[in-house]
């Protein structure tokens, strides 16, 4: 079964078309990571998936049903921008969902590793990483079948990111499907069953990267401290994934090409 089915989605803002025929499927129990540079349309795709933005055309189904309250109660979402009541305590923020969709807030806060002594403190006193944990607890309190995380680890320190990764992997083991957007390749390497790249409004897989290699770039940090920018080809993608696994590469992110990058690639082709 597919928990997410998006087919030939065209969507945008005003006259600007951001998604130009995006097609995506998330199989049950898998982690799908969507990568793309800033401004590629990852958030737009997430908005369409969750019903915040109506697509111009195309179909969206979650759990093989059209969007609606029956579907929403099986979803947990962590947004890129924090959506949280800062005056409320951590536990009250989580209860907002558990009151409606069920679940135990204390269990959820334990799962995400938020120390018990801060549960009743106002969220406004929390660090960014702690706030993220509260949002994660709220997203998983009702044990959803699908978790959607839109750049949820952006701006977090590596330790906080690792903790969130652990939670996601343990949820996957319990059968939760996860859709995760990011521009960190190491997250894809660590979490993903399948990686999609968003390019020019369409979704492509790692195997299809060569189609547009001169428009996307990987920024790679080697163990030696060297930073390298590589065209986003299938070969480079696989090399980076393998480097991340054996520890030769510490981190890698996806970026859009600058004019200089395009020039370098074209010059290389001409030679």
């Amino acid at each position: 079964m597919y928990v997410v089915q998006m087919e030939d989605i065209h969507a945008g803002y005003g006259k600007k078309e951001v998604l130009k025929g995006a097609t995506l499927e998330v199989p049950e129990g898998q982690i799908i990571v969507l990568m793309g540079p800033n401004g590629a349309g990852k958030t737009t795709l997430t908005k369409v998936m969750l019903g915040f933005l109506k697509p111009w055309s195309g179909t969206v189904k979650l759990f093989e049903k059209p969007l609606g309250k029956d579907v929403f109660k099986h979803i947990g979402v962590v947004f890129e921008e924090p959506a949280i009541y800062e005056e409320l305590s951590a536990i009250d923020n989580v209860k907002m969902f558990s009151d409606s969709y069920g679940g135990d807030p204390r269990w959820a806060l334990k799962v995400v590793g938020l120390p018990e002594h801060v549960w009743k403190k106002p969220v406004s006193t929390f660090s960014r990483g702690m706030k993220r944990k509260v949002e994660l607890a709220r997203a998983l309190v009702h044990k959803p079948g699908l978790m959607v995380l839109d750049e949820a680890t952006n701006g977090l320190d590596p330790a906080s990111r690792n903790e969130i990764h652990k939670v996601l992997l343990s949820m996957k083991e319990e059968g939760t499907s996860i859709f995760f957007t990011s521009h960190y390749l190491e997250e894809a390497g660590k979490l993903a069953d399948k990686v999609y790249f968003l390019k020019d409004g369409r979704l492509i897989t790692g195997e299809e990267l060569d189609i547009s290699y001169h428009e996307l770039f990987f920024r790679v940090l080697h163990r030696s401290g060297d930073v390298e920018r590589l065209p986003a080809t299938t070969e480079n993608f696989e090399r980076i994934m393998s480097g991340l696994k054996d520890g030769e590469i510490l981190s890698a992110s996806l970026e859009g090409a600058s004019l200089e990058d395009v020039f370098d690639v074209l010059r290389g082709e001409m030679q």
């Binding site: 969750l50 019903g51 915040f52 609606g68 309250k69 929403f72 109660k73 979803i75 979402v77 947004f79 921008e81 924090p82 959506a83 949280i84 009541y85 800062e86 907002m96 969902f97 409606s100 969709y101 709220r138």
Partner: peptide, 16 residues
Amino acid sequence: VKVRLYRTEKLWHLLG
């Protein structure tokens, strides 16, 4: 203003 300030319309949307 609070709802807007904390972007919690999204949460209410998810609660149907």
